[in-house]
């Protein structure tokens, strides 16, 4: 049985009126992998680590391809991260910061699990 927890991730700037868009059931994401969702015309990479979920943009600024959802997830000193499948740079899943190059950062999205459904926040 999968235990459902609700874990909204606090985005960088407080979102005043977050609307939530349901993208898929949590069970659709194999633990420790990612999927990509189209939310409000943006490609969002959503990762599941255990039963926690994280969302960042799917665009990899190094290869300029939309592929981050297909990277390997893991942690660095406890901080969850994903490695780009193309050139292997890694990104902090909480802040979007790139570990190898501090000048690079990807966008982070609010994400939560409600009733077994993964929802991505759209700022109003």
């Amino acid at each position: 049985m999968i235990q459902i927890t609700s874990l909204p991730i606090v985005p960088e700037t407080p979102v005043t009126s977050t609307q939530w868009q349901t993208v898929c059931a949590l069970t659709r994401i194999i633990p420790n992998t990612g999927v990509c969702a189209l939310v409000n015309d943006e490609q969002v990479a959503i990762f599941r680590i255990g039963n926690e979920v994280f969302a960042i943009e799917n665009y990899d600024p190094f290869s300029k391809a939309y592929v981050l959802s297909r990277g390997i997830v893991g942690d660095r000193q406890g901080i969850p991260k994903v490695a780009s499948p193309i050139y292997k740079q890694t990104f902090n899943l909480i802040t979007g910061d790139c570990f190898e190059d501090e000048t690079v950062k990807v966008k982070v999205f609010p994400v939560q699990v409600v009733d077994g459904q993964v929802q991505v926040g759209i700022s109003g």
């Binding site: 290869s63 391809a65 592929v67 297909r70 990277g71 390997i72 997830v73 193309i86």
Partner: peptide, 22 residues
């Protein structure tokens, strides 16, 4: 298999070689 899926580089995960545009 689900227990192995997250271990694979994208090449192994999608059973094909990823190219520069994904």
């Amino acid at each position: 298999t689900p227990s192995h899926a997250g271990l694979q580089d994208t090449n192994d995960a999608f059973l094909a070689n990823i190219q520069k545009d994904g």
